[in-house]
Design a protein around this nucleic acid. Structure first.
Lengths: 341, 341
DNA sequence: GTGAAAGCGCTAACAT
DNA sequence: ATGTTAGCGCTTTCAC
C-alpha cells in the first residue's frame, strides 16, 4: 500500500469522499464532530493530499520554472538561493533548468518547463541566444515570464536587472579618481544589455573626466578561458592598461593572477575591479574591489514579481522594470583615494 | 483557450480520444493514415500532452527531489550540475530544495518533496541534523532514497561518497613528504562521516611516517567565519603549524590569506591544502593545492543509481555504496618534492 | 450537514 | 483498426 487517499478515509469512516474533502479543508457546512473525526483519522494515517490530482483539476500547479545559463557560478547560485527561499515561503515549488550558455539547451528547457505546466518562468538568457521564438512561445501559452539580469530586449515582459550603467560608472570613476587613465574594459558581447549598459557607464565616466575612449582598451572577454588569452595579449602591447574593469569576478580574479605573473604590482601598477562581489573577492591577493550585484535580493525580487503576476496582485501598469541598486565595494586591488569616501 | 487536449483533437478529427492517444504514441494497431493525420494536426496545433494527467494515472511523476545543505557553494553546485544533466538526459525533472545547513528546513524539504510525490530523493545532509526520522519517513513512503557526500550512517540505504580516507591520506602524506611535521587538521564535527574519515586518513598518514598525533592541531573549523577565529588563534600559539589541511577550499583560501597577513610565506613557512579543487584554487596566491572531489561526476553517479533503483535496473545486491575516487592536485600552496611525482 | 455524480486529461481493458 | 468505458484522486455543483 502506497499512500492513503480521500476515498480510503471515506470508506473507513463510512462517509462520502466529498464530505471528507470538505472536512479536511474546514468547510463551514461540516459538523465539528465529523471534522475532527476525519482530521484525526487523516493525521493518524499520515494522509497526504495528492498534489497531482489537485493540479489536474485546477489545471494549475504551484510550480515555478527557472532557467539559468550557469549553475556553478556565484552570482547565479546566489540568485537561485533568493528565488528558492522566497518561492518556498509562498508555497511554490521550483523546477530548475540549466542552459549551460547553450541556445539549444535553452530552447529545450523552455519546452520541458511548458510541458511540466509550470505557472511561471524566470529566465536569465544564455550568451549564445539570438532568436527569441521560444520566449514568445512561453507568452503564447499564457505562462508568465520574467527576465532577470541577462534580459532579452526583444520580448516585451517584466524584467529585473541591476543598475549596470550606474554600477559601471561609479566603478570606473573610482578607478579614475585613484589615478588610472588607461582603463581597459573587459566586457561581453555587445548584444547583451548588461554588457552594453556597463560599456556606456564606462564611456560616460571617461568622458566626464575628459579621458579618451580608446577602442583598443575595450575587449570582449567574459570567461576565464578568454581572459587567459586576452589579458596577456594586452599586457604585451606597447602601452599597457593601468586598470582593468572586468565583467565578472572570475575574469577579475584571473586578471590579478596574470598581471602579477607579468611582474606588475596590483594595485601599484595595475588596478583591477570585478563585478558581483562574490566570495572570490575575499581570497584573491590583494582582495578584489568589485561591484556588488545583490544576487540574493534579485532572486527574491524576481519571484515576488512573478508570484504577484500569477496571483493577479501586481498593480503597476504595463511591464514592470525592476532595478536593483549596485554598490561599489572597494577592497585592495584598486588604489586608495581621499576623494572616494 | 489555454492548451489543446487529446479530446479536442479527437473531436476535430472525428475520432475517439483513445485512438488519438494511440496514434500519438505510434501504437502498431493504428493505420498509417490516421496516425499521420493525428500527428500532423497535433503538431500544427502545438499539442502538448498534459504531464499532470499522465502522472496522476500512473501515480508516478518523473520527478527527482534533491536536498542540498548549501547552494552557493562550488562543490554542491557542481554536484547539482551533474545531477541536472544526467536527469535531463533520462527525461526526469528536478525539484531542488535547500536546507541551508538547518535541520528544520531539511525536515520541511522532505515533507515538500514527499507531498510533490517525487519518485526518488537525493540528499546531502545538513550539518545540524542529528535525528533521522524524516529520512526514515522517505523510505516508509516507498520513495527511493540515496545519500551523497554528507551521508547519514543511521539509515540503511544507497550511498555515493568520495574516498575521503584515501584522499586525506594522500594529501597529508604529500605534506609530510614535502617536509611538514606539524600538520593542522581543520575538520568538521566528528559525527559527519566525511570529516571522520578524513581525520582517520590524516592520523594514519602521520602514524605511517612516525609523526605524533597532536590533538591541539586538530580543530573543528569548516566555515569561513570559524576560520577567521580559529586560524589566527593557532598562529598565535607558541608552536605554529607548518601546514594546514582544510576540510574545504573556502577555509583553505582564507587560511592562505590569514597566514600571509601574519607575515608567513606560503608555502615557504606554511603549506596549505584544501579539499574540492574548486575554481578558488586558481585565484588564491599562491594557487592552492587541493583534493579534487569530482562533484560533477558524483552528481551523475548519484542520479544514475537512483534512476536504476526507480526503474528496477540495479542488479547489485543489497545496498550500494558507490565510491568516487579523489585526486590530489598539487599546485603552489604546498612545497615541491621529488618524492611526489 | 451530507451524499451522488460529473469531470480535470489521459490510457488500458474490453468491445466491435 | 477504431470506439466505449472506466478510473487515477480530487473538488464542485446539485440534490436531499
Amino acid at each position: 500500500m502506497g499512500q492513503i487517499t480521500l476515498k480510503d478515509i471515506a470508506k473507513a469512516l463510512n462517509l462520502a469522499p466529498s464530505t471528507v474533502s470538505r472536512a479536511m479543508r474546514n468547510h463551514p457546512a461540516i459538523s465539528k464532530e465529523t471534522r475532527t473525526l476525519v482530521q484525526d483519522y487523516a493525521k493518524e494515517h499520515k494522509y497526504k493530499p495528492n498534489l497531482l490530482a489537485l493540479q489536474l483539476r485546477t489545471n494549475k500547479n504551484n510550480t515555478i520554472g527557472v532557467i539559468v545559463p550557469e549553475i556553478v557560478h556565484y552570482f547565479f547560485s546566489s540568485v537561485l538561493d533568493g528565488i528558492q527561499q522566497e518561492a518556498e515561503k509562498e508555497g511554490y515549488n521550483l523546477l530548475i533548468a540549466h542552459s549551460n550558455e547553450d541556445y539549444k539547451r535553452e530552447v529545450r528547457s523552455v519546452e520541458t518547463l511548458l510541458e511540466a505546466r509550470v505557472c511561471g518562468i524566470l529566465v536569465s538568457q544564455s550568451k549564445t541566444t539570438e532568436k527569441f521564438n521560444h520566449f514568445q512561445e512561453i507568452l503564447d501559452n499564457k505562462v508568465h515570464l520574467i527576465f532577470f539580469d541577462r534580459i532579452c530586449t526583444g520580448i516585451n515582459t517584466d524584467k529585473v536587472v541591476v543598475d549596470d550603467y550606474v554600477g559601471s560608472f561609479n566603478a570606473v570613476e573610482h578607478l579614475i579618481e585613484t589615478g588610472c587613465t588607461r582603463i581597459a574594459f573587459l566586457g561581453s558581447t555587445p548584444q547583451m544589455p548588461i554588457s552594453n549598459n556597463r560599456r556606456m557607464g564606462y564611456e560616460d565616466a571617461l568622458l566626464k573626466h575628459k579621458l579618451p575612449v580608446d577602442k583598443d582598451l575595450m575587449k570582449i572577454c567574459d570567461t576565464v578561458e578568454m581572459a587567459k588569452e586576452v589579458i596577456p595579449q594586452m599586457l604585451k602591447e606597447e602601452v599597457v592598461p593601468d586598470a582593468f574593469f572586468c565583467i565578472n569576478d572570475e575574469v577579475g580574479a584571473i586578471c590579478i593572477q596574470i598581471a602579477k605573473s607579468f611582474g606588475y604590482d596590483v594595485p601599484g601598477d595595475i588596478s583591477v575591479c570585478g563585478f558581483t562581489n562574490s566570495f572570490l573577492t575575499e581570497v584573491t591577493y590583494p582582495r578584489m574591489t568589485s561591484v556588488d550585484q545583490h544576487g540574493f535580493k534579485m532572486g527574491k525580487e524576481a519571484v515576488r514579481l512573478l508570484i504577484n503576476r500569477i496571483e493577479g496582485k501586481e498593480e503597476r501598469e504595463g511591464m514592470v522594470n525592476s532595478l536593483i541598486k549596485t554598490e561599489l565595494v572597494v577592497k585592495e586591488s584598486t588604489k586608495c583615494t581621499r576623494l572616494h569616501k
